[in-house]
Nucleic acid binder design. Sequence first.
DNA 1: CAATAATCGCAACATTGTTGCATTTATTTG
DNA 2: CAAATAAATGCAACAATGTTGCGATTATTG
Lengths: 140, 140
Amino acid sequence: MHNQFHHTAEDMIRHNGGRATAGRIGILAILLAEQHAITHREIEQRLPQEQQLDRVTLYRALEWLAEKNLIHKVTSDDRAWRYHANRDVQSHQHAHFKCTCCAQVICLDKLPVERNWPLPAGYRFQEIELTVKGLCANCC
Amino acid sequence: MHNQFHHTAEDMIRHNGGRATAGRIGILAILLAEQHAITHREIEQRLPQEQQLDRVTLYRALEWLAEKNLIHKVTSDDRAWRYHANRDVQSHQHAHFKCTCCAQVICLDKLPVERNWPLPAGYRFQEIELTVKGLCANCC
DNA sequence: CAATAATCGCAACATTGTTGCATTTATTTG
DNA sequence: CAAATAAATGCAACAATGTTGCGATTATTG
Protein backbone atom coordinates (compact mmCIF):
# COMPACT_ATOMS: atom_id res chain seq x y z
CA MET A 1 0.00 0.00 0.00
CA HIS A 2 3.02 2.25 0.28
CA ASN A 3 4.63 2.63 -3.06
CA GLN A 4 8.25 3.64 -3.46
CA PHE A 5 7.37 7.30 -3.71
CA HIS A 6 5.73 7.76 -0.34
CA HIS A 7 8.91 8.91 1.31
CA THR A 8 9.74 11.35 -1.46
CA ALA A 9 6.21 12.63 -1.42
CA GLU A 10 6.27 13.25 2.31
CA ASP A 11 9.58 15.11 2.01
CA MET A 12 8.28 17.30 -0.77
CA ILE A 13 5.23 18.21 1.26
CA ARG A 14 7.15 19.00 4.45
CA HIS A 15 9.62 21.11 2.51
CA ASN A 16 6.73 23.32 1.57
CA GLY A 17 5.53 23.82 5.09
CA GLY A 18 2.41 21.76 4.73
CA ARG A 19 1.02 19.09 6.98
CA ALA A 20 2.04 15.65 5.90
CA THR A 21 -1.34 14.03 5.93
CA ALA A 22 -2.04 10.56 4.63
CA GLY A 23 -4.20 11.98 1.87
CA ARG A 24 -1.67 14.42 0.49
CA ILE A 25 1.15 11.93 0.68
CA GLY A 26 -0.89 9.23 -0.99
CA ILE A 27 -2.01 11.50 -3.78
CA LEU A 28 1.42 12.89 -4.49
CA ALA A 29 2.96 9.40 -4.37
CA ILE A 30 0.41 8.23 -6.92
CA LEU A 31 1.17 11.15 -9.19
CA LEU A 32 4.91 10.61 -8.83
CA ALA A 33 4.50 6.96 -9.79
CA GLU A 34 2.39 7.78 -12.80
CA GLN A 35 3.78 8.42 -16.26
CA HIS A 36 0.67 10.13 -17.51
CA ALA A 37 -1.39 13.05 -16.35
CA ILE A 38 -4.44 11.54 -14.71
CA THR A 39 -7.85 12.72 -13.66
CA HIS A 40 -9.40 13.15 -10.28
CA ARG A 41 -11.33 9.96 -10.89
CA GLU A 42 -8.23 7.97 -11.73
CA ILE A 43 -6.48 9.17 -8.62
CA GLU A 44 -9.42 8.01 -6.54
CA GLN A 45 -9.26 4.59 -8.14
CA ARG A 46 -5.60 4.23 -7.32
CA LEU A 47 -6.04 5.12 -3.66
CA PRO A 48 -6.18 2.00 -1.50
CA GLN A 49 -9.62 1.05 -0.26
CA GLU A 50 -8.83 1.86 3.35
CA GLN A 51 -7.89 5.45 2.67
CA GLN A 52 -10.44 6.71 0.24
CA LEU A 53 -10.83 10.45 0.48
CA ASP A 54 -13.85 12.65 0.13
CA ARG A 55 -14.09 14.21 -3.31
CA VAL A 56 -13.77 17.65 -1.77
CA THR A 57 -10.67 16.71 0.16
CA LEU A 58 -9.11 15.34 -2.96
CA TYR A 59 -9.81 18.54 -4.86
CA ARG A 60 -8.42 20.64 -2.06
CA ALA A 61 -5.29 18.54 -1.74
CA LEU A 62 -4.71 18.81 -5.48
CA GLU A 63 -5.24 22.54 -5.31
CA TRP A 64 -2.69 22.82 -2.54
CA LEU A 65 -0.14 20.67 -4.33
CA ALA A 66 -0.54 22.74 -7.49
CA GLU A 67 -0.17 25.96 -5.52
CA LYS A 68 3.09 24.70 -4.08
CA ASN A 69 4.27 23.75 -7.53
CA LEU A 70 4.58 20.09 -6.69
CA ILE A 71 2.12 19.12 -9.41
CA HIS A 72 0.47 20.85 -12.33
CA LYS A 73 -2.95 20.81 -13.92
CA VAL A 74 -3.56 19.96 -17.55
CA THR A 75 -6.60 21.42 -19.28
CA SER A 76 -8.37 19.04 -21.59
CA ASP A 77 -11.31 19.10 -23.95
CA ASP A 78 -13.44 16.76 -21.88
CA ARG A 79 -13.89 19.27 -19.07
CA ALA A 80 -11.81 17.22 -16.67
CA TRP A 81 -8.51 18.40 -15.33
CA ARG A 82 -5.64 16.02 -15.28
CA TYR A 83 -2.75 16.22 -12.84
CA HIS A 84 0.89 15.37 -13.12
CA ALA A 85 3.78 15.56 -10.68
CA ASN A 86 6.54 18.08 -11.26
CA ARG A 87 9.69 16.04 -10.99
CA ASP A 88 11.87 19.11 -11.08
CA VAL A 89 10.65 22.46 -9.96
CA GLN A 90 11.17 24.00 -13.36
CA SER A 91 8.60 25.93 -15.28
CA HIS A 92 5.77 23.86 -16.63
CA GLN A 93 5.94 25.51 -19.98
CA HIS A 94 5.74 22.30 -21.88
CA ALA A 95 3.23 20.66 -24.14
CA HIS A 96 0.90 17.76 -23.58
CA PHE A 97 -0.22 14.98 -25.85
CA LYS A 98 -3.71 13.55 -25.69
CA CYS A 99 -4.78 10.41 -27.47
CA THR A 100 -8.09 10.99 -29.23
CA CYS A 101 -8.88 7.31 -28.90
CA CYS A 102 -8.09 6.31 -25.30
CA ALA A 103 -7.93 9.82 -23.78
CA GLN A 104 -4.51 9.13 -22.28
CA VAL A 105 -2.48 12.26 -21.59
CA ILE A 106 1.28 12.48 -21.44
CA CYS A 107 3.66 15.37 -20.96
CA LEU A 108 5.93 16.24 -23.84
CA ASP A 109 8.68 17.65 -21.68
CA LYS A 110 11.21 17.95 -24.41
CA LEU A 111 9.07 19.96 -26.72
CA PRO A 112 10.56 23.40 -27.20
CA VAL A 113 7.93 26.02 -26.77
CA GLU A 114 8.53 29.42 -28.21
CA ARG A 115 7.82 32.36 -26.05
CA ASN A 116 7.38 35.29 -28.39
CA TRP A 117 3.99 34.85 -29.90
CA PRO A 118 2.85 37.64 -32.19
CA LEU A 119 -0.05 38.94 -30.11
CA PRO A 120 -2.14 41.96 -31.08
CA ALA A 121 -0.77 45.31 -29.95
CA GLY A 122 -1.27 45.99 -26.28
CA TYR A 123 -1.57 42.33 -25.34
CA ARG A 124 0.74 40.80 -22.79
CA PHE A 125 1.99 37.22 -22.90
CA GLN A 126 1.84 35.12 -19.75
CA GLU A 127 1.93 31.45 -20.66
CA ILE A 128 0.81 28.97 -23.23
CA GLU A 129 -1.13 25.78 -23.13
CA LEU A 130 -0.42 23.43 -25.96
CA THR A 131 -2.05 20.09 -26.49
CA VAL A 132 -1.08 17.92 -29.39
CA LYS A 133 -3.79 15.43 -30.28
CA GLY A 134 -3.43 12.19 -32.12
CA LEU A 135 -3.17 8.47 -31.53
CA CYS A 136 -0.84 6.91 -29.01
CA ALA A 137 1.24 3.85 -29.81
CA ASN A 138 -1.40 1.51 -28.41
CA CYS A 139 -4.26 2.98 -30.38
CA CYS A 140 -2.48 3.38 -33.72
CA MET B 1 -33.44 41.81 -34.36
CA HIS B 2 -32.00 40.71 -37.68
CA ASN B 3 -28.40 41.64 -37.83
CA GLN B 4 -26.54 41.96 -41.11
CA PHE B 5 -25.41 38.35 -41.01
CA HIS B 6 -28.80 36.66 -41.02
CA HIS B 7 -28.86 36.25 -44.75
CA THR B 8 -25.32 34.88 -44.90
CA ALA B 9 -26.07 32.55 -42.04
CA GLU B 10 -29.16 31.18 -43.74
CA ASP B 11 -27.24 30.59 -46.95
CA MET B 12 -24.46 28.78 -45.14
CA ILE B 13 -26.95 26.51 -43.43
CA ARG B 14 -28.90 25.69 -46.58
CA HIS B 15 -25.69 24.98 -48.44
CA ASN B 16 -25.06 22.22 -45.97
CA GLY B 17 -28.40 20.58 -46.44
CA GLY B 18 -29.77 21.54 -43.08
CA ARG B 19 -33.11 23.06 -42.19
CA ALA B 20 -32.94 26.80 -41.92
CA THR B 21 -34.58 27.21 -38.55
CA ALA B 22 -34.79 30.48 -36.69
CA GLY B 23 -32.57 29.09 -33.97
CA ARG B 24 -29.72 27.97 -36.17
CA ILE B 25 -29.81 31.12 -38.24
CA GLY B 26 -29.88 33.32 -35.17
CA ILE B 27 -27.01 31.50 -33.54
CA LEU B 28 -24.81 31.50 -36.61
CA ALA B 29 -25.56 35.16 -37.28
CA ILE B 30 -24.51 35.99 -33.74
CA LEU B 31 -21.28 34.05 -34.13
CA LEU B 32 -20.58 35.68 -37.48
CA ALA B 33 -21.07 39.10 -35.96
CA GLU B 34 -18.79 38.35 -33.05
CA GLN B 35 -15.05 38.99 -33.01
CA HIS B 36 -14.38 36.68 -30.10
CA ALA B 37 -15.13 33.08 -29.38
CA ILE B 38 -18.06 33.13 -26.99
CA THR B 39 -19.73 30.71 -24.63
CA HIS B 40 -23.09 29.07 -24.71
CA ARG B 41 -24.22 31.53 -22.07
CA GLU B 42 -23.10 34.53 -24.05
CA ILE B 43 -24.91 33.30 -27.12
CA GLU B 44 -28.09 32.96 -25.09
CA GLN B 45 -27.72 36.52 -23.85
CA ARG B 46 -27.40 37.84 -27.37
CA LEU B 47 -30.49 36.07 -28.65
CA PRO B 48 -33.50 38.43 -28.75
CA GLN B 49 -36.01 37.94 -25.97
CA GLU B 50 -38.70 36.62 -28.30
CA GLN B 51 -36.62 33.77 -29.62
CA GLN B 52 -34.86 32.33 -26.64
CA LEU B 53 -33.99 28.70 -27.19
CA ASP B 54 -33.93 25.79 -24.84
CA ARG B 55 -30.46 25.05 -23.56
CA VAL B 56 -30.57 21.63 -25.19
CA THR B 57 -31.59 23.07 -28.54
CA LEU B 58 -28.75 25.53 -28.37
CA TYR B 59 -26.25 22.78 -27.65
CA ARG B 60 -27.59 20.65 -30.47
CA ALA B 61 -27.55 23.51 -32.93
CA LEU B 62 -23.96 24.28 -32.01
CA GLU B 63 -23.06 20.64 -32.39
CA TRP B 64 -24.61 20.59 -35.84
CA LEU B 65 -22.90 23.79 -36.93
CA ALA B 66 -19.54 22.46 -35.75
CA GLU B 67 -20.12 19.16 -37.55
CA LYS B 68 -20.77 21.05 -40.76
CA ASN B 69 -17.63 23.08 -40.24
CA LEU B 70 -19.48 26.37 -40.05
CA ILE B 71 -18.18 27.08 -36.58
CA HIS B 72 -15.54 25.61 -34.30
CA LYS B 73 -15.25 24.90 -30.63
CA VAL B 74 -12.49 26.29 -28.44
CA THR B 75 -11.45 24.35 -25.36
CA SER B 76 -10.75 26.47 -22.33
CA ASP B 77 -9.61 25.97 -18.78
CA ASP B 78 -12.91 26.97 -17.21
CA ARG B 79 -14.77 23.90 -18.45
CA ALA B 80 -16.86 25.96 -20.85
CA TRP B 81 -16.57 25.64 -24.57
CA ARG B 82 -16.47 28.73 -26.66
CA TYR B 83 -17.65 28.95 -30.24
CA HIS B 84 -16.49 30.98 -33.19
CA ALA B 85 -17.67 31.16 -36.79
CA ASN B 86 -15.43 29.86 -39.53
CA ARG B 87 -15.32 32.68 -42.00
CA ASP B 88 -13.51 30.58 -44.57
CA VAL B 89 -13.79 26.85 -44.65
CA GLN B 90 -10.08 26.38 -44.07
CA SER B 91 -8.58 24.19 -41.43
CA HIS B 92 -8.96 25.52 -37.94
CA GLN B 93 -5.38 24.80 -37.11
CA HIS B 94 -4.81 28.10 -35.47
CA ALA B 95 -4.16 29.29 -31.96
CA HIS B 96 -6.38 31.06 -29.51
CA PHE B 97 -5.65 33.75 -26.98
CA LYS B 98 -7.38 33.89 -23.64
CA CYS B 99 -7.19 36.82 -21.27
CA THR B 100 -6.52 35.58 -17.75
CA CYS B 101 -8.28 38.62 -16.38
CA CYS B 102 -11.54 39.02 -18.32
CA ALA B 103 -11.68 35.52 -19.86
CA GLN B 104 -12.13 36.94 -23.33
CA VAL B 105 -11.06 34.57 -26.09
CA ILE B 106 -9.91 35.56 -29.56
CA CYS B 107 -8.60 33.57 -32.50
CA LEU B 108 -5.02 34.16 -33.53
CA ASP B 109 -5.59 33.30 -37.15
CA LYS B 110 -2.24 34.47 -38.34
CA LEU B 111 -0.24 32.40 -35.95
CA PRO B 112 1.79 29.84 -37.82
CA VAL B 113 1.46 26.49 -36.22
CA GLU B 114 4.05 23.89 -36.94
CA ARG B 115 2.87 20.47 -37.85
CA ASN B 116 5.77 18.17 -37.14
CA TRP B 117 5.84 17.80 -33.42
CA PRO B 118 8.41 15.36 -32.10
CA LEU B 119 6.08 12.75 -30.68
CA PRO B 120 7.26 9.50 -29.11
CA ALA B 121 7.80 6.62 -31.51
CA GLY B 122 4.59 5.03 -32.71
CA TYR B 123 2.47 8.08 -32.02
CA ARG B 124 0.45 9.69 -34.77
CA PHE B 125 -0.22 13.41 -35.04
CA GLN B 126 -3.76 14.58 -35.71
CA GLU B 127 -4.13 18.17 -34.61
CA ILE B 128 -3.02 20.65 -32.03
CA GLU B 129 -4.80 22.93 -29.64
CA LEU B 130 -2.82 25.95 -28.61
CA THR B 131 -3.98 28.59 -26.22
CA VAL B 132 -1.82 31.54 -25.43
CA LYS B 133 -2.73 33.13 -22.12
CA GLY B 134 -2.05 36.63 -20.98
CA LEU B 135 -3.69 40.01 -20.62
CA CYS B 136 -5.68 41.65 -23.37
CA ALA B 137 -5.31 45.32 -24.22
CA ASN B 138 -8.18 46.30 -21.94
CA CYS B 139 -6.88 44.45 -18.94
CA CYS B 140 -3.21 45.41 -19.26
C1' DC C 1 -52.19 21.18 -48.34
C1' DA C 2 -50.75 16.73 -46.55
C1' DA C 3 -46.92 13.72 -45.45
C1' DT C 4 -42.76 13.13 -43.17
C1' DA C 5 -38.43 13.51 -41.42
C1' DA C 6 -35.83 16.88 -38.98
C1' DT C 7 -35.80 19.82 -35.17
C1' DC C 8 -37.37 21.42 -30.76
C1' DG C 9 -38.59 21.60 -25.78
C1' DC C 10 -39.29 19.50 -21.54
C1' DA C 11 -37.91 16.63 -17.73
C1' DA C 12 -34.60 14.12 -15.79
C1' DC C 13 -29.98 12.89 -15.25
C1' DA C 14 -24.61 12.95 -15.34
C1' DT C 15 -20.18 14.89 -14.45
C1' DT C 16 -17.08 18.00 -12.57
C1' DG C 17 -16.16 21.13 -9.38
C1' DT C 18 -17.15 24.56 -5.24
C1' DT C 19 -18.77 26.55 -0.59
C1' DG C 20 -19.99 26.67 4.30
C1' DC C 21 -19.48 24.74 8.47
C1' DA C 22 -18.84 21.55 12.15
C1' DT C 23 -15.46 17.79 13.26
C1' DT C 24 -11.05 15.72 13.37
C1' DT C 25 -6.06 15.68 13.41
C1' DA C 26 -1.04 17.00 12.75
C1' DT C 27 1.96 19.77 14.83
C1' DT C 28 3.55 22.87 18.29
C1' DT C 29 4.10 24.32 22.99
C1' DG C 30 4.47 23.99 27.80
C1' DC D 1 3.43 13.49 27.23
C1' DA D 2 -0.84 16.33 27.25
C1' DA D 3 -3.13 20.42 25.93
C1' DA D 4 -3.70 24.05 22.62
C1' DT D 5 -4.41 25.43 18.06
C1' DA D 6 -4.28 26.01 13.37
C1' DA D 7 -4.75 23.18 9.42
C1' DA D 8 -7.05 19.68 7.09
C1' DT D 9 -11.13 16.79 6.55
C1' DG D 10 -15.95 15.20 5.61
C1' DC D 11 -20.63 16.04 4.94
C1' DA D 12 -24.44 18.32 2.81
C1' DA D 13 -25.88 21.31 -0.35
C1' DC D 14 -25.19 23.83 -4.39
C1' DA D 15 -23.51 25.47 -9.12
C1' DA D 16 -22.22 25.13 -13.91
C1' DT D 17 -21.97 22.71 -18.01
C1' DG D 18 -23.50 19.36 -20.77
C1' DT D 19 -26.35 14.94 -22.30
C1' DT D 20 -30.35 11.59 -23.13
C1' DG D 21 -35.02 10.04 -24.10
C1' DC D 22 -39.16 11.07 -25.92
C1' DG D 23 -43.34 13.22 -27.34
C1' DA D 24 -44.73 17.66 -29.74
C1' DT D 25 -43.81 20.89 -33.36
C1' DT D 26 -42.28 22.55 -37.81
C1' DA D 27 -39.58 23.17 -42.27
C1' DT D 28 -39.51 21.14 -46.40
C1' DT D 29 -41.10 18.22 -50.21
C1' DG D 30 -44.28 16.53 -53.49
